[in-house]
């Protein structure tokens, strides 16, 4: 039973991963990726990493919708109304893809892994919680700091108002500006003109 489900899910996962790059509509591409991930999540559940699989599903919905939103924002012809492929170095990319599949697959098939010891069945989540709070406390807190850095970094990069004026109007730090003005720097806008 689990085997059957596993094969179905891996089929869905790989096929929809392929569809991601073969569809014209950006929204469809993002949701094909979501389907692929969801199938991976089901496989994780089958591996009794229940919490991991479900939490992946939880993350996915938000992340892939955001992905769709951004893809529609920044792709011309986002819905694929005019069918058109936008690829470069196609053959090289296929070769690289196949090579990495073969390489990693070989590791999977021929590699030797320690035999599976009985894995925890019931309180996987609880053990994960203990791990988080004790041994891997640093990882947990580092993740917090990393996420904070991500938030601030992403907002700073994406926002229009930089410290020295609007991002799209050649804002330059005053010091740099002075040194450039010695030569022939571009005119800068007023500070904080937003």
């Amino acid at each position: 039973m689990t085997d059957v489900l596993f094969w179905i899910m891996s089929g869905i996962s790989v096929l929809s991963a392929w569809r991601v790059f073969r569809t014209d509509s950006m929204v469809r591409a993002a949701y094909w990726l979501m389907v692929s991930f969801a199938a991976v999540a089901v496989i994780l559940v089958l591996l009794s990493a229940e919490f991991l699989g479900l939490v992946l599903l939880l993350m996915l919905a938000g992340e892939m919708t955001i992905m769709a939103v951004f893809m529609v924002m920044f792709m011309m012809n986002p819905a694929g109304l005019n069918p058109m492929t936008m690829v470069h170095q196609h053959r090289a990319a296929i070769a690289a893809g196949v090579l990495s599949f073969l390489g990693l697959g070989a590791v999977g098939v021929f590699g030797r892994f320690p035999a599976g010891v009985s894995f925890a069945t019931r309180d996987v989540t609880a053990r994960l919680g203990m791990e988080l709070l004790n041994d891997s406390m640093l990882i947990f807190q580092t993740a917090g700091v990393t996420l904070l850095a991500t938030m601030i970094g992403a907002l700073a990069i994406a926002s229009r108002r930089g410290r020295y004026g609007l991002a799209d109007e050649d804002s330059i730090e005053p010091a740099v500006e002075n040194s450039q003005n010695a030569g022939e720097g571009p005119p800068s806008t007023e500070k904080g003109s937003a």
């Binding site: 939490v55 599903l57 938000g62 919708t65």
Partner: peptide, 24 residues
């Protein structure tokens, strides 16, 4: 389901996908 509320949260997050698709 031992991660019941995670599962519930996942389904409720997916609602976003359905409504967005219906609008799109």
């Amino acid at each position: 389901v031992s991660s019941g509320i995670v599962y519930f949260g996942a389904t409720m997050a997916m609602v976003m996908v359905a409504v967005f698709l219906n609008g799109w």
